[in-house]
Each structure stands twice: as C-alpha cells, then as structure tokens.
Write a protein that binds this DNA or RNA. Structure first.
Length: 196
DNA sequence: AATATGCGCAACCGCTCCGTG
DNA sequence: ACACGGAGCGGTTGCGCATAT
C-alpha cells in the first residue's frame, strides 16, 4: 500500500545481534521500560529497526524467559491449544509463561509436527490421517487455516485478553483452558492450571 | 579426516489490526 | 467516515552446529 518503511534501512544493521547491541537494548529498557519501539533504537543508540529491537527483546533478552527443553506437559498443552486456536502462536505463548511465540512456533514446526505425524495425526486439523494421505505431510499447510474465528477473535485485544466467545474458557477433554489472556511474562502458571 | 546432509534457532519480511487525528 | 502511523503477528528464510557417510 505504499507504506513508508518502518525504518531507514540504509542505516540499520541486520543479522545476528552483538553483545554490545544486546547490552544497549537491555540497559535502555531497564531504564525506560518498553515504550515506543519505533523511536527506541535511536534513543538507545542502536543501528537497528524498531521491529528488530522488539523481537530481540521479546524472544531473547527478556529476563523472565524460560530457556531450555519443553516438558511433556508443555508439549501436550501446545498441542491442545493448537487444536483449539490454530496457528495463533502469540495466544498459545500467552498460556505458557516464559515461552515466546517464536519459540513455540519453531518447536511446533520442528518437533511437534513430526510427533503428530508419527502418531498418524494431521498436525493442522488434529484429525487422524486417513488412507493414502496417512503418511504424507500436508503439502500446503496454509490451505488448512484455523477457523476464521481464531483470526478475528484475536483482534479485539489480540495481545491482551478479550475472547468473549467459547474460546474464553474452552474445555478440552475435561481440561479447563481458560483462554483469557495474560501477558506471557505473568507467572500465572496456566500450565499447572491446565495440567491439573 | 573431510565432506555432505539434516536440524534447530534466530531473525527478517510482509500483512493485518488498532488507535488517533 | 476516512486516512495514516505504529505495533503485533505469522510465515519464511538463512546461518551455524551436529551427525552421518
């Protein structure tokens, strides 16, 4: 739509972040908090796009991140939530404290997809694979998009709370998922809530 | 020991949504 | 009511590391 770029690409670094850049970003956010990402790079003295700073902070530098392997509980929770919400990684991440949408997305694509396929379950529909297609991964994942509800319902307060429909407190086989959202950083421990 | 292949993670890109003037 | 700008999200890609040959 002819929108102006989010940043001056000619003057921004790309690729892997250096330690110094990380330190600058962390120091700035500690001092000023998460504010306007667009102006943050300049204010923090970083040659980076605001989007890039936000991503780096959320996915890597945030102090409350839980790094390391996913537990079986988390596995199951992700599978259940994906069955309910589709590829709404941010919503799923909201139920897993310390995990980021990017991390979950990667984990899904590299581990869980395979796991489900091995069990004969279609990772997109969560239905048993049938007949000839049983061993064939779906060729076009995008073709099987989550229900439209998932897409639109996340909009009112996508990154906050705001599912007023059945998603709000969905039940999966007796599991109360209570899908009202809280910031990923909040240690509300939904895993335990769900797993129990 | 060297090379090829596969896997996983981090980051980028483009699109959509929401708020504001 | 409309247009614009900012923020967030999901999909995709690239790079580095580990393992197999």
């Amino acid at each position: 739509m002819g929108r102006s770029p989010c940043c001056e690409k000619a003057h921004t670094n790309k690729g892997a972040w250096t330690k110094e850049e990380d330190q600058r970003l962390v120091a700035y956010i500690k001092a000023h908090g998460e504010g306007c990402w667009r102006s943050l790079p300049k204010a923090a003295g970083l040659q980076r796009c605001g989007k890039s700073c936000r991503l780096r902070w959320i996915n890597y530098l945030r102090p409350d991140l839980k790094r390391g392997n996913f537990t079986e509980e988390e596995d199951d929770l992700i599978i259940n939530l994906h069955g309910l919400l589709g590829n709404k990684w941010s919503l799923i991440a909201g139920r897993l404290p310390g995990r980021t949408d990017n991390e979950i997305k990667n984990y899904w694509n590299t581990h869980i997809k395979r796991k489900l396929l091995a069990r004969g379950i279609d990772p997109q529909t969560h239905h048993p694979l049938s007949g000839a297609a049983a061993n064939a991964p779906s060729s076009r994942p995008q073709d099987q998009r989550p229900p439209a509800a998932a897409r639109s319902s996340c909009s009112p307060q996508t990154s906050g709370a705001g599912h007023s429909s059945d998603e709000d407190s969905a039940h999966l086989g007796g599991i109360d998922l209570n899908l009202s959202l809280s910031p990923p950083s909040q240690p509300s421990s939904p895993v335990a809530a769900v797993a129990n």
